[in-house]
Computed example of a mutant assay.
Amino acid sequence: MKVNIKNIKGEDTGKSVELLDDIYAVEPSDHAIYLDVKQYLANQRQGTHKSKERAEIAGSTKKIKRQKGTGTARAGSMKSPIFRGGGRVFGPRPRDYGFKLNKKLKKLARKSALTYKAKDEKVTIVESFDIDTPKTKSFLNILSSLAVQQEKSLLVVDNVKTNVYLSSRNIANTKVVTVEKLNTYEIMSASHLIISEGAVEKIESMFNSKVTA
């Protein structure tokens, strides 16, 4: 699949790049995408929720009424969950929501996500670029030139570009990531992918590697 390479002004450079079919034209697996997105979202959860149970409530353990003869249920102390201010029954405890996925499945999920974007013609390849000074306006002009200013876009670069990142972080619905940070959730969440020329090669080498996570 050949895609023309554009510059940051949105003009064709006369160059093109071949997007490999075994990355951008695979048989997509919706279930692999689902599992990878589920893992990503699970890993974002802090899991620090906690409520006090009966043994953790501060207060007296004095028996509040006699055992028999009141006509009501017996009660040991005010810490009982049936009373206001008492402990919670089976309350939440700190836990890790993360779970393991095989590397091959995660690789298939990302390939499937890239395939969907390529199939919908939502992939734009641009020359490797940088911004001299961090300016939001400069980045907005780039998005406008590429005709994606109204879309939720994900810019994939081959290495950390500080000025590009600083120029984009105040723009809603726009995110800049390196190839190493590319994940299924953000690919599927974006309406349009903008990939730098250098990042295309890095993506190919990453998926061809036998140790890709």
Rank of each mutant, 00 (worst) to 15 (best):
R95H: 10
R93H: 13
N141R: 08
S189F: 12
A213Y: 10
F90G: 04
E201R: 10
S128D: 14
R45Q: 09
K122C: 07
A55T: 08
L155H: 07
P81I: 00
E204I: 14
V160T: 11
S209V: 05
S51M: 12
A55K: 07
K202S: 04
M78K: 04
A147M: 09
S77K: 08
I33Y: 06
A199R: 04
L146F: 02
H49C: 13
E18T: 11
E121S: 10
Q39E: 15
Q46Y: 09
V177Y: 15
I171E: 09
I195Y: 04
V17A: 11
K119F: 01
Y165G: 06
S138R: 10
F139M: 13
K104T: 02
G198H: 05
S145K: 03
D96V: 12
L140M: 09
E180C: 08
D22G: 02
E201D: 01
N159D: 15
G98M: 01
N102I: 11
P134F: 01
I187K: 04
L105K: 00
K63N: 12
I125Q: 05
Q149Y: 09
L19M: 07
L101S: 01
V37A: 06
D36M: 07
K63V: 15
I142M: 03
I171N: 04
P28A: 01
A118E: 05
R110E: 15
K2P: 02
N159G: 07
D96K: 02
Y40G: 00
A25L: 08
G85D: 05
K106S: 09
L146T: 02
S60R: 00
K62M: 04
E127R: 11
R54N: 11
E53H: 14
S189V: 02
S80C: 10
D30I: 06
N183V: 15
I5D: 01
S77F: 06
S80M: 04
S205R: 05
I131C: 00
S196M: 10
L143F: 06
K2H: 05
D96T: 09
S16W: 14
G86F: 14
S209E: 03
G71Q: 08
K210V: 15
S167G: 09
A172L: 13
S209M: 06
A25V: 10
N102Y: 03
V3R: 12
A172T: 12
N7A: 00
N183H: 14
P28R: 06
M78T: 01
K161A: 13
K181H: 14
A172N: 15
K135F: 07
S196C: 10
N141C: 00
A42C: 12
E186Y: 13
K119T: 09
P28Q: 07
D96Q: 06
L146Y: 02
V123G: 06
K135E: 11
H49Y: 15
S51F: 06
V37E: 11
L114D: 00
G86N: 08
D96L: 08
M188W: 13
R169G: 03
S138M: 04
Q150W: 05
E53D: 09
D21R: 03
S128A: 02
T70D: 03
S60H: 00
S191W: 10
T184A: 09
R54T: 13
E27C: 00
V179S: 02
S209C: 04
V37D: 06
G69Y: 05
K181F: 14
V126F: 02
S205V: 04
D158L: 06
V156E: 07
A73E: 05
